[in-house]
Design a protein around this nucleic acid. Structure first.
Lengths: 178, 178
DNA sequence: CAAGATAGTAAACGGGATTGACGAAGTGGT
DNA sequence: ACCACTTCGTCAATCCCGTTTACTATCTTG
């Protein structure tokens, strides 16, 4: 199904392509789900300043404490970005930074008392959302989706890593038209 | 995953939340997929300036033309944001804006000749990626995921719309703290 | 100890979106 | 016909989340 030589698609085909595009479905669902989660945690936990990006950090934080650099690696962002986030979360009183006894350069990031409580709430909210969803679309479906995503994610990551180079599954229709 | 002993919650909870959170999986997969798509279209179509955000606009554009405000509603972003995006895509020669004969305030956004060709390429790339993925994780899985997402998306959207209203959360009596 | 790697910070900037204010054009009631 | 109101789109300022570049302080190793 090489594209370059096809006549124009019909509007119907276009509509179909739009509606049932995996990436689009994924993206939209993910975005909304994320927002719902943040909104709920913010409400439940009563931390008005809590932002979506903070939510992204917290699950990577070990209870024993974690270094900023480790967080950065886990999250796939720069340590500077992590630093900024940590500043904010610290200001919210959710985490604290203590010197690392094992390394004078490093600091250990860990939950405060309050942060631990918040984490609980957050985990609960996440679980609730999934439960909520499961009740509406079927528990088996949610489970299946997670399983499927777990399979798909590494593949997609590989695709990303592959970048420009050969991904030609079907003989490589590379009509690099200029 | 070495977690300190903690009375508040179990390491299992934490690990589970980290590893198998639906939203996280969704988000990560979607983001990468999106980037891969953009990168490929950029290459295939030869529009170096094409950005991920542009790709997000195009599928919402009817062939007959669409108003900026309509696009904004469809995409769930502000019309200002759409305006910016449109400026850029227009500069790339992919779309053009014509006055709306039915409404003097409005302008109709539509593909240029070149844009239509690009759309074809884009659609083809998207299809290619899906085929690619299907070859690696199974065609049935991809189909199933799309079907599942089609079921889930409206539910999630409803959840978002529900927003403030309380449903039993966290075994608690708290519908929206605050 | 010198050379180099690593933890973290600082400053500037970029992309993508938001809010707020606005002019211009359509719409409806009197 | 008029005036109030809404809607389409734009400008400008700002926010959010991250990046690059550059740097200090500290650890590690030969």
């Amino acid at each position: 199904m090489s594209v370059a030589s096809d006549p124009l698609f019909t509007p119907e085909q276009l509509a179909a392509a739009k509606a049932v595009n995996l990436g689009h479905l994924l993206f939209r669902t993910a975005r909304i789900l994320n927002e719902v989660g943040v909104a709920r945690v913010r409400g439940e936990f009563g931390v008005p300043g809590l932002k979506a990006s903070h939510m992204a950090v917290l699950p990577h934080l070990d209870l024993a404490g974690t270094r900023a650099t480790t967080l950065a690696k886990r999250m796939g962002i720069t340590k500077q970005a992590v630093g900024q986030l940590l500043d904010e979360i610290e200001a919210l009183g959710v985490i604290e930074r203590a010197p690392d006894p094992a390394d004078g350069r490093a600091r250990i990031v860990r939950f405060t008392e309050r942060g631990r409580a918040g984490l609980l709430v957050g985990l609960g909210v996440l679980a609730d959302i999934e439960r909520d969803l499961a009740a509406r679309v079927g528990e088996d479906r949610i489970g299946r989706m997670k399983a499927d995503l777990l399979v798909l994610l590494p593949v997609v990551e590989a695709l990303e890593r592959a970048g420009e180079v050969g991904f030609g599954v079907n003989g490589g229709t590379r009509a690099r038209g200029g």
